[in-house]
Design a protein around this nucleic acid. Structure first.
Lengths: 204, 204
DNA sequence: GTGAATAATGACCGTACGGTCATTTCACTG
DNA sequence: CAGTGAAATGACCGTACGGTCATTATTCAC
């Protein structure tokens, strides 16, 4: 977004500050317990000030989550684009996910809040940004199937599975007390997926 | 638990009624929004009555979740015990999970609340019952490796992955508007896992 | 320097929660 | 049927939340 006037610059600065504060509070206390008072204190402004830049708590948290989620989306897309085949792409996607949340632990609570809330089953559909995320993975698989790098599976179903595996492994890694080897986990997930989606299928 | 006196029978009935009401409310409104007033209304008792049988909201929800989670644990264990080899066991485990939540949608919100809360990373370890669940899956894999039905992987890591896949697929199935084929999803997950964990590993 | 316009504030409001307890209802005994 | 102890009740309490707005502080043009 281009900044034209001084007012817009200040406004952008405030918005960014408040969103960063919101992320920190969510990281520290979780989504539900991230109160406006706590966010305001973290941002060093009064509670009322937040309402000059965001309509409501829901609005603030939604936009904050969208920023973080958008960043992950970008990383995943870039990871795919920088490799020509399924194996390289899967490795890059898995590494992008595990690495991203390793570096930015606080983002994960926001990601979780959105990916989980994304699927308020029986109520609404997925959140648009989560749909994008799944869509990116789906396209990756469609492409692999066309190229004959993977067997014919329902691409969206497989995308859901990959997303779930990444989510679960990141959660496990964050829960692990001592740091675990990133490469080993990436290799493991990729190998399971590559073999699992491989064309060759002749079991007993 | 054996019931000896009439008082104990009444007490057990009340406890069960309240827990069932809690499950229904959680299923309808979600974990955070399951208030004591709503649970009391659902159970057809006054709010104060709940506090005669449970110490607090936290106590009630914890015990309610443990009941539901314990049931799933039992199903998974039984599924494993009733098959001799990895393929059969995986199929039974996957089917038990997807089927269980298909029949009892309301349980899933409780399961989610626990599996997610189970991993309050940076705070505490997993919930004991979730540990049991993962432990069961871990033993399944250890056994398969010993029997040479699967390649040598870190069993606990693989168990986490399987749990995540099941969670994700159930969530997706519940989000799907029209009913999707259970057998197809079971077959898909099992095939990915079986191939993914297979001994043979000779890729490019 | 001054005053008008704009931004920031935090005391305050309504609401809804978890939890309590004096009162009422009930069940059972003699 | 009267009396008594236990069980159930729901009005009530303190608290903490999201959100508001009259007041105060700041900025900026002239």
């Amino acid at each position: 977004m281009k900044i034209k006037t001084k007012e817009e610059a200040v406004e952008q600065f405030r918005i960014t500050s408040i969103q960063e504060a919101a992320m920190k509070v969510i990281a520290r206390k979780g989504y539900e317990l991230a109160t406006m008072n706590a966010i305001a204190e973290e941002a060093g402004v009064a509670k009322g000030t937040i309402y000059l830049y965001f309509e409501s708590r829901e609005d603030l948290l939604k936009k904050t989550g969208e920023s973080a989620f958008g960043e992950l989306n970008g990383l995943v897309t870039a990871a795919i684009d920088s490799h020509p085949d399924l194996e390289g792409r899967l490795g890059a996607v898995v590494r992008a996910n595990l690495g991203f949340f390793e570096e930015n632990r606080e983002f994960f609570r926001i990601y979780l809040a959105f990916a989980d809330r994304a699927c308020e089953f029986q109520k609404r559909a997925h959140h648009p940004l989560y749909r994008d995320y799944l869509q990116t993975l789906t396209r990756l698989l469609e492409d692999a199937i066309v190229r004959n790098e993977a067997r014919k599976v329902e691409p969206h179903r497989a995308a859901v599975l990959i997303g779930a595996m990444l989510r679960g492994m990141v959660l496990q890694r964050l829960a692990d007390r001592e740091k675990t080897d990133l490469d080993a986990d990436v290799e493991f997930i990729v190998s399971v997926l590559l073999n699992g989606l491989e064309k060759v299928r002749n079991r007993s």
